[in-house]
Write a protein that binds this DNA or RNA. Structure first.
Lengths: 211, 211
DNA sequence: TAGATGACTATACGAACGTTTAGGCGCTGC
DNA sequence: GCAGCGCCTAAACGTTCGTATAGTCATCTA
Protein backbone atom coordinates (compact mmCIF):
# COMPACT_ATOMS: atom_id res chain seq x y z
CA UNK A 1 0.00 0.00 0.00
CA UNK A 2 1.86 3.05 -1.27
CA UNK A 3 0.87 6.51 -0.11
CA UNK A 4 -1.63 7.99 -2.58
CA UNK A 5 -0.23 11.06 -4.30
CA UNK A 6 -1.74 14.52 -4.18
CA UNK A 7 -4.46 15.33 -6.67
CA UNK A 8 -5.85 18.61 -7.92
CA UNK A 9 -9.38 18.62 -9.26
CA UNK A 10 -10.18 21.48 -11.58
CA UNK A 11 -13.73 22.18 -12.73
CA UNK A 12 -14.23 24.71 -15.48
CA UNK A 13 -16.61 24.70 -18.42
CA UNK A 14 -14.12 26.35 -20.74
CA UNK A 15 -11.96 23.64 -22.41
CA UNK A 16 -9.15 26.11 -23.06
CA UNK A 17 -9.00 27.10 -19.41
CA UNK A 18 -9.11 23.45 -18.37
CA UNK A 19 -6.19 22.58 -20.58
CA UNK A 20 -4.18 25.58 -19.45
CA UNK A 21 -4.76 24.62 -15.82
CA UNK A 22 -3.94 21.02 -16.57
CA UNK A 23 -0.61 21.70 -18.16
CA UNK A 24 0.38 24.22 -15.51
CA UNK A 25 -0.33 21.82 -12.70
CA UNK A 26 1.19 18.81 -14.41
CA UNK A 27 4.31 20.85 -15.10
CA UNK A 28 4.95 21.07 -11.37
CA UNK A 29 4.37 17.36 -10.87
CA UNK A 30 0.80 17.41 -9.61
CA UNK A 31 -1.78 14.76 -10.41
CA UNK A 32 -4.67 16.49 -12.19
CA UNK A 33 -8.28 15.62 -12.94
CA UNK A 34 -10.25 17.93 -15.18
CA UNK A 35 -14.03 18.26 -15.33
CA UNK A 36 -16.39 20.49 -17.23
CA UNK A 37 -19.10 20.47 -14.60
CA UNK A 38 -19.86 19.57 -11.02
CA UNK A 39 -22.05 16.70 -12.20
CA UNK A 40 -19.14 15.14 -14.07
CA UNK A 41 -16.96 15.38 -11.00
CA UNK A 42 -19.58 13.83 -8.75
CA UNK A 43 -20.00 10.96 -11.19
CA UNK A 44 -16.28 10.27 -11.20
CA UNK A 45 -15.88 10.04 -7.43
CA UNK A 46 -13.13 11.36 -5.23
CA UNK A 47 -9.51 10.24 -5.34
CA UNK A 48 -7.85 8.57 -2.37
CA UNK A 49 -5.09 10.91 -1.27
CA UNK A 50 -4.93 14.57 -0.37
CA UNK A 51 -7.03 16.61 -2.75
CA UNK A 52 -7.61 20.23 -3.61
CA UNK A 53 -10.44 21.71 -5.64
CA UNK A 54 -10.05 24.51 -8.16
CA UNK A 55 -13.41 25.91 -9.14
CA UNK A 56 -14.66 28.58 -11.44
CA UNK A 57 -17.28 30.59 -9.60
CA UNK A 58 -19.53 30.49 -12.63
CA UNK A 59 -20.26 26.95 -13.59
CA UNK A 60 -23.04 25.40 -15.63
CA UNK A 61 -25.83 24.28 -13.35
CA UNK A 62 -24.93 25.00 -9.75
CA UNK A 63 -22.52 27.85 -9.24
CA UNK A 64 -19.20 27.29 -7.54
CA UNK A 65 -20.48 28.93 -4.40
CA UNK A 66 -23.53 26.70 -4.32
CA UNK A 67 -21.30 23.71 -4.78
CA UNK A 68 -19.17 24.84 -1.86
CA UNK A 69 -22.29 24.96 0.30
CA UNK A 70 -23.31 21.53 -0.92
CA UNK A 71 -19.97 20.10 0.08
CA UNK A 72 -20.21 21.67 3.50
CA UNK A 73 -23.71 20.37 4.16
CA UNK A 74 -22.63 16.92 2.98
CA UNK A 75 -19.83 17.14 5.55
CA UNK A 76 -17.17 16.99 2.86
CA UNK A 77 -14.44 19.45 3.70
CA UNK A 78 -12.19 19.60 0.67
CA UNK A 79 -10.04 22.70 0.33
CA UNK A 80 -11.47 24.94 -2.38
CA UNK A 81 -9.78 27.57 -4.49
CA UNK A 82 -11.95 29.85 -6.57
CA UNK A 83 -11.05 31.36 -9.89
CA UNK A 84 -13.20 33.88 -11.63
CA UNK A 85 -13.19 36.34 -14.44
CA UNK A 86 -16.24 38.29 -13.36
CA UNK A 87 -16.31 38.34 -9.59
CA UNK A 88 -17.30 40.95 -7.10
CA UNK A 89 -16.52 41.60 -3.47
CA UNK A 90 -19.63 40.04 -1.89
CA UNK A 91 -18.96 36.91 -3.90
CA UNK A 92 -15.36 36.66 -2.72
CA UNK A 93 -16.36 37.38 0.87
CA UNK A 94 -18.97 34.64 0.81
CA UNK A 95 -16.44 32.22 -0.63
CA UNK A 96 -13.89 33.01 2.05
CA UNK A 97 -16.53 32.81 4.79
CA UNK A 98 -17.30 29.36 3.44
CA UNK A 99 -13.73 28.37 4.12
CA UNK A 100 -12.16 28.85 0.70
CA UNK A 101 -8.38 28.85 0.63
CA UNK A 102 -8.09 31.52 -2.02
CA UNK A 103 -10.18 33.56 -4.41
CA UNK A 104 -8.31 34.57 -7.54
CA UNK A 105 -9.43 36.87 -10.31
CA UNK A 106 -8.27 36.37 -13.87
CA UNK A 107 -5.69 37.12 -14.87
CA UNK A 108 -3.70 35.80 -11.92
CA UNK A 109 -0.09 34.85 -11.46
CA UNK A 110 0.53 31.13 -11.81
CA UNK A 111 2.57 31.20 -8.63
CA UNK A 112 -0.38 32.53 -6.63
CA UNK A 113 -2.46 29.59 -7.74
CA UNK A 114 0.30 27.11 -7.01
CA UNK A 115 0.88 28.58 -3.57
CA UNK A 116 -2.80 28.29 -2.79
CA UNK A 117 -2.89 24.71 -4.05
CA UNK A 118 0.04 23.70 -1.92
CA UNK A 119 -1.57 25.25 1.10
CA UNK A 120 -4.80 23.44 0.31
CA UNK A 121 -3.06 20.12 -0.16
CA UNK A 122 -1.16 20.55 3.08
CA UNK A 123 -4.38 21.18 4.94
CA UNK A 124 -6.05 18.23 3.32
CA UNK A 125 -3.13 16.04 4.20
CA UNK A 126 -3.41 16.82 7.88
CA UNK A 127 -7.18 16.53 7.71
CA UNK A 128 -6.84 13.05 6.19
CA UNK A 129 -4.30 12.06 8.78
CA UNK A 130 -6.53 13.20 11.58
CA UNK A 131 -9.52 11.52 9.99
CA UNK A 132 -7.65 8.26 9.83
CA UNK A 133 -6.69 8.30 13.48
CA UNK A 134 -10.22 9.19 14.52
CA UNK A 135 -11.64 6.44 12.32
CA UNK A 136 -9.30 3.93 13.93
CA UNK A 137 -10.38 5.17 17.34
CA UNK A 138 -14.02 4.89 16.44
CA UNK A 139 -13.55 1.37 15.13
CA UNK A 140 -12.11 0.36 18.47
CA UNK A 141 -14.88 2.15 20.30
CA UNK A 142 -17.49 0.40 18.20
CA UNK A 143 -16.03 -2.94 19.26
CA UNK A 144 -17.05 -2.18 22.85
CA UNK A 145 -20.19 -3.74 24.26
CA UNK A 146 -22.92 -1.36 25.45
CA UNK A 147 -21.95 -1.96 29.03
CA UNK A 148 -18.31 -1.34 28.34
CA UNK A 149 -19.19 1.98 26.74
CA UNK A 150 -21.14 3.03 29.79
CA UNK A 151 -18.23 2.13 32.00
CA UNK A 152 -15.80 3.97 29.75
CA UNK A 153 -17.94 7.09 29.80
CA UNK A 154 -17.86 7.14 33.57
CA UNK A 155 -14.20 6.18 33.86
CA UNK A 156 -13.03 9.09 31.73
CA UNK A 157 -14.94 11.53 33.91
CA UNK A 158 -12.73 10.36 36.76
CA UNK A 159 -15.27 8.36 38.69
CA UNK A 160 -13.95 5.58 40.88
CA UNK A 161 -14.82 1.94 40.28
CA UNK A 162 -16.91 1.92 43.41
CA UNK A 163 -18.87 4.96 42.28
CA UNK A 164 -19.38 3.55 38.82
CA UNK A 165 -20.68 0.36 40.38
CA UNK A 166 -23.21 2.40 42.28
CA UNK A 167 -24.15 4.40 39.20
CA UNK A 168 -24.81 1.28 37.17
CA UNK A 169 -26.21 -0.81 40.01
CA UNK A 170 -23.62 -3.55 39.74
CA UNK A 171 -20.76 -4.78 41.83
CA UNK A 172 -17.40 -3.11 41.85
CA UNK A 173 -15.71 -6.23 40.55
CA UNK A 174 -17.88 -6.20 37.48
CA UNK A 175 -16.83 -2.66 36.79
CA UNK A 176 -13.18 -3.64 37.05
CA UNK A 177 -13.60 -6.37 34.47
CA UNK A 178 -15.35 -4.05 32.06
CA UNK A 179 -12.77 -1.40 32.67
CA UNK A 180 -9.98 -3.80 31.87
CA UNK A 181 -11.75 -4.82 28.68
CA UNK A 182 -12.15 -1.19 27.70
CA UNK A 183 -8.47 -0.48 28.19
CA UNK A 184 -7.52 -3.53 26.16
CA UNK A 185 -9.97 -3.01 23.31
CA UNK A 186 -9.22 0.68 23.02
CA UNK A 187 -5.51 0.05 23.15
CA UNK A 188 -5.11 2.62 25.88
CA UNK A 189 -1.86 2.51 27.78
CA UNK A 190 -3.09 4.53 30.73
CA UNK A 191 -6.05 6.38 32.15
CA UNK A 192 -4.99 9.78 30.79
CA UNK A 193 -4.52 8.07 27.44
CA UNK A 194 -8.07 6.73 27.55
CA UNK A 195 -9.42 10.10 28.58
CA UNK A 196 -7.80 11.73 25.56
CA UNK A 197 -9.27 9.11 23.28
CA UNK A 198 -12.71 9.77 24.68
CA UNK A 199 -12.26 13.51 24.25
CA UNK A 200 -11.16 13.09 20.67
CA UNK A 201 -14.15 10.91 19.89
CA UNK A 202 -16.61 13.23 21.55
CA UNK A 203 -15.08 16.34 20.06
CA UNK A 204 -15.25 15.13 16.48
CA UNK A 205 -18.78 13.86 17.07
CA UNK A 206 -19.82 17.35 18.17
CA UNK A 207 -18.07 19.05 15.28
CA UNK A 208 -19.86 17.00 12.68
CA UNK A 209 -23.27 17.99 14.01
CA UNK A 210 -22.53 21.67 14.52
CA UNK A 211 -22.41 22.56 10.85
CA UNK B 1 -18.29 43.12 39.89
CA UNK B 2 -20.91 43.43 37.21
CA UNK B 3 -20.36 41.83 33.82
CA UNK B 4 -18.86 44.40 31.45
CA UNK B 5 -21.17 45.20 28.58
CA UNK B 6 -20.40 44.69 24.90
CA UNK B 7 -18.53 47.45 23.12
CA UNK B 8 -18.14 48.29 19.47
CA UNK B 9 -15.08 50.25 18.45
CA UNK B 10 -15.40 52.10 15.17
CA UNK B 11 -12.42 53.74 13.51
CA UNK B 12 -13.07 56.01 10.56
CA UNK B 13 -11.47 59.28 9.58
CA UNK B 14 -14.71 60.73 8.25
CA UNK B 15 -16.61 62.43 11.09
CA UNK B 16 -19.92 62.06 9.27
CA UNK B 17 -19.42 58.31 8.90
CA UNK B 18 -18.37 58.05 12.54
CA UNK B 19 -21.48 59.79 13.72
CA UNK B 20 -23.73 57.73 11.47
CA UNK B 21 -22.17 54.54 12.78
CA UNK B 22 -22.40 55.79 16.32
CA UNK B 23 -26.08 56.57 16.20
CA UNK B 24 -26.90 53.34 14.41
CA UNK B 25 -25.12 51.22 16.97
CA UNK B 26 -26.38 53.15 19.95
CA UNK B 27 -29.91 52.82 18.61
CA UNK B 28 -29.72 49.08 19.11
CA UNK B 29 -28.31 49.43 22.59
CA UNK B 30 -24.63 48.89 21.92
CA UNK B 31 -21.83 50.67 23.74
CA UNK B 32 -19.83 52.59 21.15
CA UNK B 33 -16.38 54.16 21.05
CA UNK B 34 -15.47 56.25 18.04
CA UNK B 35 -11.97 57.05 16.82
CA UNK B 36 -10.59 58.92 13.84
CA UNK B 37 -7.40 56.89 13.63
CA UNK B 38 -5.68 53.78 14.85
CA UNK B 39 -3.30 55.88 16.92
CA UNK B 40 -6.20 57.41 18.81
CA UNK B 41 -7.63 54.01 19.53
CA UNK B 42 -4.31 52.65 20.75
CA UNK B 43 -3.91 55.63 23.05
CA UNK B 44 -7.33 55.06 24.57
CA UNK B 45 -6.81 51.39 25.42
CA UNK B 46 -9.19 48.50 25.13
CA UNK B 47 -12.45 48.12 27.03
CA UNK B 48 -13.02 45.29 29.46
CA UNK B 49 -15.84 43.24 28.03
CA UNK B 50 -16.50 41.63 24.68
CA UNK B 51 -15.43 43.91 21.88
CA UNK B 52 -15.78 44.16 18.13
CA UNK B 53 -13.84 46.37 15.76
CA UNK B 54 -15.35 48.20 12.80
CA UNK B 55 -12.62 49.52 10.51
CA UNK B 56 -12.48 51.45 7.34
CA UNK B 57 -9.96 49.79 5.07
CA UNK B 58 -8.49 53.15 4.20
CA UNK B 59 -7.33 54.90 7.29
CA UNK B 60 -4.85 57.71 7.84
CA UNK B 61 -1.43 56.25 8.57
CA UNK B 62 -1.62 52.49 8.62
CA UNK B 63 -4.36 50.98 6.53
CA UNK B 64 -7.04 48.83 8.09
CA UNK B 65 -5.40 45.71 6.69
CA UNK B 66 -2.03 46.66 8.13
CA UNK B 67 -3.69 47.26 11.45
CA UNK B 68 -5.28 43.83 11.28
CA UNK B 69 -1.83 42.32 10.77
CA UNK B 70 -0.45 44.34 13.64
CA UNK B 71 -3.15 43.03 15.94
CA UNK B 72 -2.43 39.46 14.87
CA UNK B 73 1.32 39.75 15.40
CA UNK B 74 0.70 41.34 18.78
CA UNK B 75 -1.44 38.30 19.61
CA UNK B 76 -4.56 40.41 19.98
CA UNK B 77 -7.45 38.59 18.39
CA UNK B 78 -10.31 41.05 18.31
CA UNK B 79 -13.03 40.37 15.77
CA UNK B 80 -12.75 42.81 12.90
CA UNK B 81 -15.37 44.04 10.45
CA UNK B 82 -14.21 46.02 7.45
CA UNK B 83 -16.12 48.73 5.74
CA UNK B 84 -14.96 50.35 2.56
CA UNK B 85 -16.11 52.58 -0.21
CA UNK B 86 -13.34 51.74 -2.63
CA UNK B 87 -12.39 48.13 -2.16
CA UNK B 88 -11.39 45.43 -4.53
CA UNK B 89 -11.43 41.64 -4.45
CA UNK B 90 -7.80 41.03 -3.44
CA UNK B 91 -8.30 43.43 -0.56
CA UNK B 92 -11.40 41.65 0.67
CA UNK B 93 -9.76 38.25 0.28
CA UNK B 94 -6.76 39.33 2.28
CA UNK B 95 -9.01 40.70 4.99
CA UNK B 96 -10.99 37.48 5.21
CA UNK B 97 -7.82 35.39 5.21
CA UNK B 98 -6.72 37.50 8.13
CA UNK B 99 -9.78 36.34 10.01
CA UNK B 100 -12.14 39.25 9.42
CA UNK B 101 -15.76 38.59 10.30
CA UNK B 102 -17.18 40.56 7.41
CA UNK B 103 -16.13 42.87 4.61
CA UNK B 104 -18.83 45.33 3.62
CA UNK B 105 -18.85 47.78 0.74
CA UNK B 106 -20.68 51.06 0.95
CA UNK B 107 -23.50 51.39 0.71
CA UNK B 108 -24.47 48.45 2.85
CA UNK B 109 -27.63 47.49 4.68
CA UNK B 110 -27.56 48.41 8.35
CA UNK B 111 -28.79 44.96 9.22
CA UNK B 112 -25.79 43.33 7.56
CA UNK B 113 -23.47 45.37 9.73
CA UNK B 114 -25.45 44.62 12.86
CA UNK B 115 -25.50 40.91 12.09
CA UNK B 116 -21.75 40.91 11.63
CA UNK B 117 -21.26 42.83 14.85
CA UNK B 118 -23.38 40.43 16.81
CA UNK B 119 -21.45 37.52 15.40
CA UNK B 120 -18.19 39.23 16.28
CA UNK B 121 -19.32 40.00 19.80
CA UNK B 122 -20.48 36.44 20.31
CA UNK B 123 -17.10 35.14 19.23
CA UNK B 124 -15.30 37.58 21.44
CA UNK B 125 -17.47 36.61 24.36
CA UNK B 126 -16.50 32.95 24.08
CA UNK B 127 -12.89 33.90 23.47
CA UNK B 128 -12.89 35.95 26.66
CA UNK B 129 -14.51 33.18 28.58
CA UNK B 130 -11.96 30.68 27.37
CA UNK B 131 -9.14 33.09 28.07
CA UNK B 132 -10.34 33.52 31.62
CA UNK B 133 -10.42 29.81 32.35
CA UNK B 134 -6.99 29.30 30.82
CA UNK B 135 -5.60 32.21 32.81
CA UNK B 136 -6.97 30.66 36.00
CA UNK B 137 -5.41 27.35 35.06
CA UNK B 138 -2.07 28.96 34.37
CA UNK B 139 -2.14 30.79 37.67
CA UNK B 140 -2.57 27.49 39.43
CA UNK B 141 0.14 25.90 37.34
CA UNK B 142 2.51 28.75 38.13
CA UNK B 143 2.02 28.08 41.83
CA UNK B 144 3.66 24.69 41.40
CA UNK B 145 7.27 24.22 42.37
CA UNK B 146 9.68 23.12 39.59
CA UNK B 147 9.71 19.58 40.87
CA UNK B 148 5.95 19.42 41.05
CA UNK B 149 5.76 20.50 37.43
CA UNK B 150 8.10 17.71 36.41
CA UNK B 151 6.00 15.19 38.27
CA UNK B 152 2.81 16.58 36.75
CA UNK B 153 4.25 16.33 33.26
CA UNK B 154 5.01 12.66 33.78
CA UNK B 155 1.76 11.90 35.60
CA UNK B 156 -0.38 13.18 32.75
CA UNK B 157 1.45 10.95 30.29
CA UNK B 158 0.19 8.03 32.33
CA UNK B 159 3.42 6.97 33.97
CA UNK B 160 3.17 5.13 37.29
CA UNK B 161 4.58 6.56 40.49
CA UNK B 162 7.27 3.93 40.49
CA UNK B 163 8.30 4.79 36.95
CA UNK B 164 8.30 8.51 37.68
CA UNK B 165 10.51 7.82 40.66
CA UNK B 166 12.95 6.09 38.35
CA UNK B 167 12.75 8.86 35.76
CA UNK B 168 13.58 11.53 38.29
CA UNK B 169 15.94 9.45 40.39
CA UNK B 170 13.98 9.82 43.60
CA UNK B 171 11.96 7.49 45.81
CA UNK B 172 8.42 6.54 45.01
CA UNK B 173 7.16 8.12 48.20
CA UNK B 174 8.56 11.47 47.17
CA UNK B 175 6.67 11.19 43.92
CA UNK B 176 3.46 10.46 45.77
CA UNK B 177 3.86 13.54 47.91
CA UNK B 178 4.52 15.76 44.91
CA UNK B 179 1.66 14.19 43.05
CA UNK B 180 -0.71 14.89 45.88
CA UNK B 181 0.46 18.47 45.99
CA UNK B 182 -0.09 18.83 42.26
CA UNK B 183 -3.65 17.53 42.50
CA UNK B 184 -4.40 19.88 45.36
CA UNK B 185 -2.80 23.00 43.89
CA UNK B 186 -4.32 22.43 40.46
CA UNK B 187 -7.72 21.74 41.94
CA UNK B 188 -7.99 18.56 39.92
CA UNK B 189 -10.67 16.14 41.02
CA UNK B 190 -9.23 13.16 39.22
CA UNK B 191 -6.44 12.00 36.98
CA UNK B 192 -8.41 12.50 33.74
CA UNK B 193 -9.26 15.94 35.01
CA UNK B 194 -5.59 16.75 35.53
CA UNK B 195 -4.72 15.38 32.11
CA UNK B 196 -7.27 17.68 30.49
CA UNK B 197 -5.88 20.66 32.36
CA UNK B 198 -2.40 19.82 31.12
CA UNK B 199 -3.65 19.46 27.56
CA UNK B 200 -5.43 22.79 27.71
CA UNK B 201 -2.33 24.52 29.02
CA UNK B 202 -0.04 22.95 26.44
CA UNK B 203 -2.49 23.54 23.61
CA UNK B 204 -2.89 27.23 24.22
CA UNK B 205 0.86 27.58 24.70
CA UNK B 206 1.43 26.07 21.26
CA UNK B 207 -1.27 28.18 19.62
CA UNK B 208 0.25 31.42 20.80
CA UNK B 209 3.61 30.65 19.22
CA UNK B 210 2.29 29.30 15.94
CA UNK B 211 1.15 32.64 14.55
C1' DT C 1 20.84 34.31 62.93
C1' DA C 2 16.17 32.97 62.78
C1' DG C 3 12.53 31.85 59.69
C1' DA C 4 10.55 30.30 55.45
C1' DT C 5 10.53 27.45 51.49
C1' DG C 6 11.47 23.57 48.70
C1' DA C 7 13.09 18.98 48.04
C1' DC C 8 13.52 14.50 49.73
C1' DT C 9 12.78 10.33 52.62
C1' DA C 10 10.46 6.95 55.70
C1' DT C 11 6.68 4.18 58.01
C1' DA C 12 2.23 2.75 57.96
C1' DC C 13 -2.46 1.84 56.67
C1' DG C 14 -6.58 1.94 54.20
C1' DA C 15 -8.51 2.51 49.72
C1' DA C 16 -8.44 1.73 44.95
C1' DC C 17 -6.77 -0.83 40.92
C1' DG C 18 -6.03 -4.81 37.75
C1' DT C 19 -5.79 -9.50 36.40
C1' DT C 20 -6.92 -14.17 36.69
C1' DT C 21 -10.24 -17.72 37.17
C1' DA C 22 -14.85 -19.23 36.98
C1' DG C 23 -19.87 -19.40 36.44
C1' DG C 24 -24.76 -17.88 34.97
C1' DC C 25 -27.87 -15.78 31.44
C1' DG C 26 -29.95 -14.88 26.97
C1' DC C 27 -29.89 -14.89 22.14
C1' DT C 28 -28.86 -16.84 17.46
C1' DG C 29 -28.24 -20.44 14.19
C1' DC C 30 -28.22 -25.18 12.93
C1' DG D 1 -33.83 -28.30 21.15
C1' DC D 2 -29.27 -27.22 21.97
C1' DA D 3 -24.62 -25.78 21.11
C1' DG D 4 -22.09 -21.80 20.77
C1' DC D 5 -21.31 -17.20 21.64
C1' DG D 6 -21.51 -12.70 23.48
C1' DC D 7 -22.59 -10.45 27.54
C1' DC D 8 -22.70 -9.91 32.26
C1' DT D 9 -21.34 -11.14 36.84
C1' DA D 10 -18.46 -12.64 40.82
C1' DA D 11 -14.37 -13.93 44.31
C1' DA D 12 -9.42 -13.94 45.30
C1' DC D 13 -4.86 -12.04 45.28
C1' DG D 14 -1.20 -9.01 44.44
C1' DT D 15 -0.07 -4.27 43.09
C1' DT D 16 -0.57 0.56 43.13
C1' DC D 17 -2.33 4.85 45.03
C1' DG D 18 -3.22 8.46 48.48
C1' DT D 19 -2.66 10.49 52.71
C1' DA D 20 -1.37 11.18 56.96
C1' DT D 21 2.77 11.89 60.33
C1' DA D 22 7.42 13.04 60.99
C1' DG D 23 11.94 14.38 60.11
C1' DT D 24 16.56 15.88 57.48
C1' DC D 25 18.93 19.06 54.59
C1' DA D 26 19.98 23.07 51.62
C1' DT D 27 18.91 27.65 50.14
C1' DC D 28 17.17 32.09 50.41
C1' DT D 29 15.68 36.13 53.05
C1' DA D 30 14.62 39.42 56.58
Amino acid sequence: MTAPSSTVIAIDDDPAVREALGSLLRSVGLQVRLFASVAEFLKAGRPEGPTCLVLDVRLPGRSGLDFQRDLASANISLPVIFITGHGDIPMSVQAMKGGAIEFLTKPFRDQDLLDAIHLGLTRDRSRLENERTVAALRARFDSLTPREREVMALVVTGRLNKQIAGDLGVSEITVKVHRGQVMRKMGASSLPDLARMADKLKLTAEESQSS
